[in-house]
């Protein structure tokens, strides 16, 4: 068991998401940064599907009530164990009673905590990913007790310490494909999309990131159609909205660009005021 002494800004249990329930109007959800999650799971020997704790902006304070092993990846929030600072991207042994806490946000926006065997919270519609209205809670709360593997974990301490290239966290380029309504854009709009530096507005969440700079927009809304995480929508006011993992399953704004999976990972590490630019992939 892991006891939540403090939640931090916003932390939720996530896995690879709820693919396959979209015909009920259920969002895909799942971890915002899949790359950091894969790494966190690999480091403790978990499968890719194992549920992790996604930590946003500032970290929680967690007390382990059993032995375990963990790894922390993604944004650097100065983690420490019993007050002693911890490495990122490293296999860490946990003893019963250990307290994990986080400090200042140094880079990125979302950290990932894996535990050996994965978090064992309740699965709903094939996934443990928290989402309001589907799972009981949208995020973890103070005094929650999160289930993890209670038995003495079996592990081999395989990675002594990996030098990882985490440059994708600081990268401001977002690789994109053309989305279904891209060709409806004028040449001027296309030029602007690929030349301008866009700023992340304060409206950014697991659902969507809205950008500050607007394009002049003459496109009509479309009849409601499916959308995907990573879809860039052009709203009537000319503002661009990049849909993220908790986005609705359908939408009525023209879909102009589609982020690659690695661009979604990069965007997940951005926050209010960060600059990004779109790079078209062939």
């Amino acid at each position: 068991m892991v006891r939540v002494l403090n939640t931090g800004f916003y932390s939720s249990i996530q896995d690879i998401g709820r693919l396959g329930a979209q015909h009920h109007g259920v969002p895909i959800s799942g971890v915002m940064d899949q790359r950091a999650t894969r790494l966190a799971n690999v480091l403790v020997g978990n499968s890719e599907e194992a549920a992790v704790l996604e930590i946003t902006m500032s970290g929680p304070k967690l007390k382990f009530e059993c032995n375990s092993a963990i790894a922390i990846t993604g944004a650097d929030m100065a983690p420490s164990l019993n007050g002693k600072s911890l490495d990122y991207n490293r296999f860490i042994i946990i003893n019963k009673g250990d307290v994990l806490s986080f400090g200042r946000l140094n880079s990125g926006f979302r950290s990932y905590l894996s535990v050996i065997g994965g978090f064992q919270t309740k699965e709903v519609l094939g996934s443990k990913s928290m989402y309001k209205g589907v799972t009981q809670f949208a995020c973890i709360n103070k005094e929650d007790v999160l289930r993890i593997n209670q038995n003495n974990p079996k592990y081999q301490k395989h990675f002594s310490g990996l030098k990882m290239n985490d440059s994708y966290i600081k990268n401001s380029n977002l690789d994109v494909y053309k989305a279904p309504e891209f060709e409806n854009l004028t040449e001027v709009q296309k030029d602007k999309l690929f030349s301008e530096l866009f700023t992340i507005s304060k409206d950014n969440s697991r659902m969507a990131y809205q950008l500050e700079e607007a394009l002049e927009n003459t496109l009509e809304p479309i009849i409601t159609s499916p959308v995907l995480p990573g879809t860039v929508q052009l709203t009537p006011s000319g503002k661009l909205i990049i849909l993220m993992r908790d986005c609705q399953t359908t939408g009525g704004y023209p879909r102009v660009l589609q982020l690659t999976e690695s661009a979604i990972n990069t965007l997940a590490q951005k926050y209010t005021g960060s600059k990004v630019c779109f790079k078209l992939k062939d």
Binding site: G20, H23, I223, T224, S225, P226, L228
Partner: peptide, 13 residues
């Protein structure tokens, strides 16, 4: 992995 439709389109993931 997923099939979902709206008024006049179908997405196949």
């Amino acid at each position: 992995e997923s099939l979902n439709h709206a008024y006049a389109s179908l997405i196949i993931i």
